[in-house]
Amino acid sequence: MVSENAIAWYHFSSPKNFYPLAGRLIPWFWGLAVILLVVGLYMSFFVAPTDYKQGESYRIIFVHVPAAWMSMFIYLVMAAYAIIGLTWKLRMAEMMASALAPTGAMFTFLALWTGAFWGKPTWGAYWVWDARLTSELILLFLYIGYMSLQSAIDDPRRAARASALLAIVGVINLPVIYWSVKWWNTLHQGASVSPTMAPKMASIMITTMLVMTFAFWMYTIAVVLMRARRVILERERQTSWVMEMVNADPQAEMKK
């Protein structure tokens, strides 16, 4: 069983085999993402109770918190792929790492944006130097650095490896940065928009957040698979299998 799994792993780590598999999986992940998102949004707006202190505006946390979770988690996954790609020289892992970055940056931005909207009614200002928001901002800088480095290097192989190394450096620094910012924040007694408001957060709220998180996850997988397929076609275009596929099926370019 274990060895069979290992073979399957190895099989799909080759871009040639990954490409059609990803193509088959993408619609499923899109479907799951849409269903979960509809359920999650319904729960956020109609099922979760109104907060006794903050009224309706608090409902933005159902987007804010899952987006913040995803932004951090995607960076970790990205770094994991980077490590795998550099150590075992798996091209597929390198491509997955670079395919994850834009989505990670998007969720970071979403977390910041919703955070600002959460801050306005709660604190009367769009931006407060709260530890969570500041860390998210720095995370956004890290994502931007990763993507800029990748797009600045012309050779795709060097670009993938250099940015993978940067992701690893970033992930080592991330806890230090996060913790420094937290300490800095407590020292200066900055405002906090931490959404953990009630000591006993209603379990319906947690469930809603989890549903939203899963919806975001499915969306991420679907988008990342699509992006990875595009990267595969671009980076492997001189290989025989891509040429065959493109020649045999004139629609392939469009389907990507």
Binding site: I138, F141, L142, I144, G145, S148, L149, L166, V169, G170, N173, V176, I177, S180, V181
Partner: peptide
């Protein structure tokens, strides 16, 4: 600067 400034924060 984009790459290293965020890492200088701590």
């Amino acid at each position: 600067s984009l790459l290293v400034l965020p890492l200088y924060i701590p």
